[in-house]
Amino acid sequence: MQTPAPVDYARATSVDHALQLLEQHGEDARVIAGGHSLIPMMRLRIASPTTLIDLNDLDELKGIRVEGNEIVIGAMTRHAEVLDSAILAEHYPIFREAEKLIADPVVRNRGTVGGSMCQADPSEDLSAVGSALGGTVVIRSKSGSRTVPIREFHFGPYMTQVADGEILTEVRFPIRPGAGSAYEKVERRVGDWPVASAGVFVVVRDGVVSDCGIGLTAVGAEHFSAPGAEEFLVGKAPTEENLAQAAAIAADSCSPVSDQRGPADYKKHLAQELTLRALRRAVAASQGA
């Protein structure tokens, strides 16, 4: 039996209240969202926060909406809601494709977007999606809000820009008319972390790629991204040859490690192949849009 160490508990009634509780309970207090990463870590005693501040009542952090030319996803939005969102299905099918492969339906009822982002697992699927789409995250503290580009959000495995006394409140993605997007993942069994995943968006205009984003996870890609491959592809025709070249550049920029999910060279191969497959489908979707 694995039981967390003794911990205090407080339930926040608003973001301001949560920030106040964070300050009050000191640097070893942690906010808890769906708890599906933090509670297992507490049971293994990898994490031993002194106080948990429960954000689950904060309706102000839930939901997906369009604001101007951006899609805003509240940090406490559950994976299940992302999967079923009509707004995201319309603008970025990449979310639905990725979410269908994140954990399992019961876990998706609890796990949240903000929790996944802040856990910052180096194999997190949503981090690849976020990096592909290149949005921003909004972080709040008692002194106000700050906005951070999503590609600067992660410092490294399990490390983010969210500092003591701060809470991630929302993630924002620009709407790109005519964009196609896709997500490709190889996992060992249903609901597992990826061996490798690639997510992309592409806008094809007048026969050339006018904009694109490539996100990769579980393969040691810096900031879950492949900027060199994006630079290569923008301005070029989306031919099979060019897509393959971009995928090769993306894979080259990865530094996967061998572990129980597979050897490094296999992961590198997957990074290339999955990027190529995702690019093909995103190009087709953009051309059909």
Partner: peptide, 27 residues
């Protein structure tokens, strides 16, 4: 399993199934 993998502990919380080994009772 104690690790939110096996699902034998599934109960409903407010009409939705959750894995009760990965939720604190106070929540």
């Amino acid at each position: 399993c104690d690790t939110s993998n096996c699902g034998t502990c599934v109960v409903w919380v407010d009409d939705e199934p959750v894995k009760s080994c990965t939720m604190l009772a106070v929540m």
